[in-house]
Amino acid sequence: MKAYLLFAKNTWNEIVTYRLNFVMWRVRNLLQLLTIYLLWATITSQSANIFGYSKSEMLTYILGVSFLTAVVMSSRTQEMGENINSGDLSIFLIRPINYFGYFLSRDLGDKAMNIVFSIAEISLVYLILKPPIFIQTNFVFLIFFIIGTTLALLLNFLIGSLLGMLGFWSPEIWAPRFLMYIVLGFLAGGSFPLDIFPKQIVNFLQLFPFTYLLYFPMKIYLGRVSSSEIFQGFLITLAWILVFYFSLLFIWNIGLKKFGAEGR
């Protein structure tokens, strides 16, 4: 356990070493937040209630999703494919550590730094623009929100790891990830709540794992889901986590048999 904590700490230190890189990355995040926030601020100023959301709910969704993106989506799993392609995976295989545990620790270190900066950025936006904010006071919703976020975090880790495994079969590891970013950018609800789409589309999307990364936890925070919907959402998320977990183990074992440590 100590070793994994150290991996997380090392990732934090790595980020601090390349400070300019990280600061530029966060400036980019702030710009992306402002773009989407200002768009929705304009739209919500035209009508008191849009797509069934009040102004404060919609702006809270946008700011909340920005925070959740730092918690859920920040990841280091893209390095897995690079490790496999460069042959560096062989170094990990001879170490007495769990490869996925190592990356989960790295993810946590990365997330910790992103969360700190994300809170600072959202506070800055809040102080300058003073948007109306919805504060959830129901303790039950808050607990479910934390559970939903934790499940989303695991789900994203497994999706990222599965994409990394493509490295066993192809040197082309960026193209699938690029496609995944595009899909997640829209279908995870990072720019708008998905229920602005017609109900049939939302019901269909809810069968897939993407909606449970950002949209579902944020809907819980806003208290816009019934207890049965929460239960159903958790059940689907858990099912996807199990499917991805066993797929990952299966693909990892096949991949290892194929791995030739080329490049090392």
């Binding site: 192809s170 193209a175 699938p176 690029f178 496609l179 970013y181």
Partner: peptide, 10 residues
Amino acid sequence: SFGAILFFVG
């Protein structure tokens, strides 16, 4: 072609 198709689709 695998990568090119994925980038194109994306």
